[in-house]
Simulated assay, not measured.
Amino acid sequence: PTILCLPRSFECSQKNTALVPAAALGIGGILVFWLRSRHKIQTIEMGDGWWGSGERPLKGKEDESIRPFKIETSDKEIEDLHRRLEQARYTPPLEGASFHYGFNSSCLQKVVAYWRNQFDWHKQVEVLNKYPHFQTTIEGIDIHFIHVKPSYVPHGRAVQPLLMVHGWPGSFYEFYKIIPLLTEPARHGLDGGDVVFEVICPSIPGYGFSEAPHQKGFDSIAAARIFHKLMNRLGFKQYYLQGGDWGSRITTNMAQMLPQSVKGLHLNLIFIGRLGLRRTISVMLGAYVPWLVGLTREDVRRLYPFIQKNIYNLLQESGYLHIQATKPDTAG
């Protein structure tokens, strides 16, 4: 019996010898896939959209021309504005309320008086027209933007396109002071290295001189797609992005949508993803039993005053955000 078992044992050992490398290879492959998937860029489908009035035309190509645009006003428009400012009526503010219940009407009267009697609207129009303005039609709506190129490019310098996107409540005008530093750094005593930028500052649809969407469902992903189309229409295949506030979300979506087109992304506001149920429960338990969720005393000392303060401020100061997010057609 012993002699008969030897071949079987030998046969089993041969099978085990063959299985070990196969199992190791399989486990190794799974491990490599897991490690690579952790660092995989989460992309967004570009898709397409139509935000113009009525149904999207079935035939014909959209007008892709770039049209010069100039900001204009008239004495008649300014007189009409003055008349409406003069006819404004105010309710007295609550005593001692300051700005805790909203914009203080006593202060508002001073602001309106400045608009009516001191602000030079014609001069402001001249300031706004300092840089070249353009419009182009994308997905059925007119998109406004300024496009500033460097007047002089030193030998050996590379000109890089930079798209800068504003937020709420803001506009393309936010970037007027920094544009010369980006397009002509040497003139302002800056060492730009080997890089000079040409700057494109669009108005988000519905802001400034960009047409507002006529259809429901417009979001930051739609704005990101439109701005990619804008840069492509201007002849750029790769470009840098900068964004703050809603511009931060839009440019982040642009980088997620076409990462191969985005050479660099600069943000001055970071949107943090959802905590998730597990993280939320950990934060809640951490205030009472920090050791249970792995928090130290120093973590508690730093974390919870910050959360309490910011959650309170968020609830106190974000009423406008809830209205805009849920009832954007509400006037006010």
Rank of each mutant, 00 (worst) to 15 (best):
T251E: 00
V196E: 15
D63C: 06
E77A: 02
K237F: 00
P21C: 03
H122I: 13
S210R: 10
H188S: 03
T326E: 09
A287W: 07
D329F: 11
N253Q: 11
K40Y: 09
A24D: 05
K327E: 00
Q316R: 07
E317H: 09
R225Y: 14
K237N: 13
P132R: 08
D48N: 07
R89E: 12
I221H: 09
I44R: 08
E211P: 00
G332A: 09
H322P: 14
P132A: 06
G273M: 08
L4M: 15
P68M: 01
L128C: 15
V199Q: 05
R84T: 04
F172D: 03
W115A: 11
F145L: 00
W121Y: 10
C12H: 10
G96F: 01
H166F: 00
H266D: 01
L181A: 07
G208F: 08
Y312P: 00
T17L: 07
R297D: 12
I272C: 05
D219C: 08
I178T: 03
F306Y: 15
Y240N: 06
S220M: 05
E174G: 03
I281H: 04
L58A: 08
R187Q: 08
W246D: 09
P93A: 04
D219N: 14
G235I: 14
F10H: 13
K61V: 05
V195H: 08
H166M: 12
I250V: 09
H144Y: 00
C107L: 11
G60H: 06
P21I: 09
H100A: 07
V32W: 02
I3K: 13
D80C: 07
G47V: 11
L277D: 12
D191F: 05
R279A: 14
H144S: 05
R249A: 15
R297P: 01
Q160G: 12
L267R: 13
L163Q: 07
Q135I: 04
Q135W: 03
R83Q: 14
V20L: 04
L4P: 13
A22M: 06
D75M: 08
S53Y: 06
F69N: 10
K110A: 09
G156S: 03
P92I: 00
L277S: 11
L94T: 06
L190C: 05
